[in-house]
Design a protein around this nucleic acid. Sequence first.
DNA 1: CAATAGATTAGAATTATTCTAAATAACTCA
DNA 2: TGAGTTATTTAGAATAATTCTAATCTATTG
Lengths: 138, 138
Amino acid sequence: MPGAQKGDFAAKLRVAQLRPTKQRVALARLLFAGADRHVTAERLHAEAANSGVRLSLATVYNSLHQFTAAGLLRQVIVDGEKTHFDTNTGEHHHFYFEGGDLLTDIPGGDVRIEGLPRAPAGTEIERVDVVVRLKSRG
Amino acid sequence: MPGAQKGDFAAKLRVAQLRPTKQRVALARLLFAGADRHVTAERLHAEAANSGVRLSLATVYNSLHQFTAAGLLRQVIVDGEKTHFDTNTGEHHHFYFEGGDLLTDIPGGDVRIEGLPRAPAGTEIERVDVVVRLKSRG
DNA sequence: CAATAGATTAGAATTATTCTAAATAACTCA
DNA sequence: TGAGTTATTTAGAATAATTCTAATCTATTG
């Protein structure tokens, strides 16, 4: 099976109804080749540049949003300045290191949240996000 | 006790080591006169203008941050675009209506979170935020 | 391969927020 | 109270993340 490596990402994109362009495949490789990870647009753009792929920041933004819409990524809002994207789309939560711009996952299965009120009339719960904000111990 | 109304806010500011200027007192009145509330800088600025107080947006930002540092307000990060400030500084969580830019409180006492892992070595938990994201029921 | 729909791009535009330096107002205390 | 000191306010410039635009490319399809 020659070309299998590369084909994985192209196939993944095709399943998501996204044309597997050079840029999208390159970003998909950076995002999905290894373990789950968290990225910002800026950082992913820098990484792409480092790994020899030339693409514009606009394309990174476009792709991150398209991947998110397709369910391949999920947005994590924790710091008001930048948007973080998470390759782990399953149920889970986050540790966030204030200032450090660093996120790590808390497996969802371990966490139970009890006593939440019902969703207000006319609405339904889309998702429950838990962010554990950390500071370094003085 | 004449001037008691106004004095409340000036006193509150003095306790917080903030000089009770006309602008800060006006903002404090808007924020703390009634029930707990959530505001953005832009909205508070508009409200101040409506209530006849002329102050700059920069002052609103300054004041919101100073109030927050003094423990009178708390920041709520839920939507990546704007920062929300909450007059309820006690333990509690939030419902967030996607798109609607609207926040409501979930009393903290009712909610229990179990199964969180320990804070990573060298860090401690500063706060645990729960955001229940709502969408309108289709 | 030609035609077409979709993607990429550079750079301008937008938005929230912060910064800067000058003008103003609050506080101190003699 | 009034001079002097210090903190605050302000308009507008600056910044930073993100989105938009219009033109240029590229993948796909027949």
